[in-house]
Amino acid sequence: MASTPLNPPNAPQSLPQKNLKVDWVKLTLILGVTAYLLLVLVIPLLNVIYQALAGGFPGFWAALQESDFQKAVLLTLLIAVIVVPLNTVFGLCAAWALTRRNFPGRAFLLSVIDLPFSVPSVVAGLMLVLLYGREGWFGSLLEGWDVKIIFAVPGMVLASAFVTMPFVVREVLPVLEDLGKDQEEAARTLGANEWQIFWRVTLPSIRWSVMYGVILTNARTMGEFGAVAVVSGSIAGKTQTLPLYVEEAYKQYQTQASYTAALLLACLALVTLVLKTVLEQQTQTGDE
């Protein structure tokens, strides 16, 4: 890459006397940015890998065999398997509904869907406690039915669904808006029913943005801490997801266990970033 000019390709070429000075500015800025990102992002990420494997491979392997760890992995997967499809179906419905009809209050409804992103995650958990907890709205009703939502898996599902609700809508809505109704109407005049239109016409054109939304929903669901911590009670082996396991092990000075779980979650984050980058390229070519 040494041959790459440090000048941006569109910079004016008519000012050669400035080149030397400008190069220094650029070099300083590039080095500064790299140093900042190293300090804040890259070194902490490398530290996760280092700490997980610092105790040698046997220690890492033993931490993987821990039963509470394995249960945390399974619970994390279970919650994602429930929440991601729910929010995907909701996201598709909401995006379709909001683009196919124009009505007063449309912008307002859109900002209501976006609300979970603005609610502090602990407050999101608190809301569910006030709704389903012992002193909550449905507390006595649920106790009568012997159904546990708070300090149990259903509460954790609700909390994860709450905090990830807007992702799919946000990604799909603009694409659906750009797409317009023409193709769907053409399919309708050709005799397709609504279901066929959705599967054969609409979905293929929005598939990349749906995928994008699904990946973001999944990453946040598996990584959510605050809201889930409030409603779960973090009971080892029962209501502990991977992020909760990371914290618990850290507090118990089980550094190896903590970092093993953290490494798994960091891998999830890296896979998410790679898929995101790939999908961003796809949406630039595919959806348009």
Binding site: N47, V48, A262, L273
Partner: peptide, 21 residues
């Protein structure tokens, strides 16, 4: 691509590794 890391990395992991580093 690394800019998006804070969006993708679970916050508990971020806190853990920053606390150590």
């Amino acid at each position: 691509a690394a800019i998006d890391l804070p969006f993708a990395l679970p916050t508990a992991v971020a806190g853990l590794t920053l606390a150590t580093v």
